[in-house]
């Protein structure tokens, strides 16, 4: 039981950098950071026990009885807040990426993997600005899957669009096909990937709706949790096929739309207030 992960993993348990977040609830956030750190310290000595005690690993094939999706209320998304982005980065080990020594900041900005980005929209007629987090939209009819020559880009039965890195050849057709700029290519050797998120050079990747959480029986995503923890509650995760789910009820009662609905992709990520 000596082989623990704690010494290898300095970034995950540490409190988030408060300067990155302009949200109002810093004390709660700091507390959550400490709580997360404490949890890490407690569970670290028993890697196996941790996996058994908390997760409920899936034993049956995913089915199309569910379709996972997100609803984003852009009215509640706060300008300058990056909590969801940071949470996504930490969940998936993207915060462990490092700039190559010979790379300029500008080049690094365009090349590092980004699964979730904040986008600011301005209505040029009225001047109204809205903020929204933009990730893979988990299209029902995903163009990325249509163009993939190897079948690596695929849609799981429960609607999650993913890349099977074992078969991805890194051609990046899917990146060009995606209307949402949702996908990233890994340009350099990765040394410090997380156990729950394998990722390596030469493959394309994108938001997978926290698929390891899905398969361990948890009921939310990192971005939605982080947003809720700050009190913004702008992101709601849930099952679009379950009429009783929170997301289905919210979709029934508030106006929402798909980004680029003209493309008829029937996205699993919906936006209100835009």
């Amino acid at each position: 039981m000596k082989h623990q992960e704690a010494p290898l993993d300095p970034s995950l348990g540490s409190p988030p950098d408060p300067t990155l977040n302009a949200g109002p609830d810093q004390s709660r956030r700091a507390f959550l950071g400490i709580a997360a750190g404490a949890t890490a310290a407690v569970v670290a000595p028993a890697f196996v026990l941790q996996a058994q005690a908390v997760g409920n690993p899936r034993a049956e094939r995913v089915s199309d009885a569910h379709r996972w999706g997100l609803l984003v209320d852009t009215n509640r998304c706060v300008d300058g807040c990056r909590a969801c982005v940071d949470a996504c980065d930490q969940e998936n080990g993207l915060d462990l990426q490092r700039k190559q020594p010979d790379q300029s900041e500008a080049e690094w900005d365009t090349q590092k993997a980004v699964w979730l980005r904040k986008v600011k929209l301005q209505d040029n007629l009225t001047g109204r600005v809205s903020n929204l987090p933009m990730m893979c939209q988990h299209c029902e009819h995903p163009p990325c899957v249509d163009v993939c020559p190897t079948g690596a880009s695929f849609k799981r039965a429960d609607g999650i669009v993913m890349v099977d890195r074992h078969t991805c050849i890194g051609c990046r057709y899917c990146m060009m096909a995606c209307p949402y700029k949702a996908r990233s290519f890994i340009h350099e050797v990765v040394e410090d990937q997380l156990t729950r998120v394998p990722r390596g050079k030469g493959c394309v990747e994108s938001c997978n709706l926290c698929v390891s959480r899905r398969d361990q029986g948890l009921d939310s995503t990192a971005c939605a949790d982080a947003c809720t923890a700050l009190g913004h509650r702008a992101i709601l995760f849930g099952d679009l096929k379950d009429p009783a789910s929170a997301i289905s009820q919210a979709l029934r009662t508030m106006p929402s739309r798909q980004i680029r609905e003209d493309l008829d992709l029937n996205t699993g990520v919906r936006y209100a207030g835009v």
């Binding site: 082989h3 992960e5 290898l8 993993d9 995950l12 348990g13 959550l32 709580a35 997360a36 750190g37 949890t39 890490a40 569970v43 890697f47 941790q50 996996a51 908390v54 997760g55 949470a87 930490q90 969940e91 080990g93 890195r165 050797v189 990765v190 410090d192 990937q193 997380l194 156990t195 729950r196 998120v197 394998p198 990722r199 390596g200 050079k201 030469g202 493959c203 926290c210 390891s212 959480r213 361990q216 948890l218 009921d219 939310s220 990192a222 949790d225 982080a226 809720t228 923890a229 509650r233 709601l236 929170a246």
Partner: peptide
């Protein structure tokens, strides 16, 4: 090339573990 060569980060993130505790206390928005 892709998989972690030491156990790193857990099968669930610390954030997920913390939020999982939260979930039972009803912190998720209705």
């Amino acid at each position: 090339g892709c998989h972690a060569n030491v156990p790193r980060g857990g099968l669930l993130s610390p954030a997920a573990l913390a939020a999982h505790g939260d979930a039972t206390a009803g912190a998720r928005p209705s």
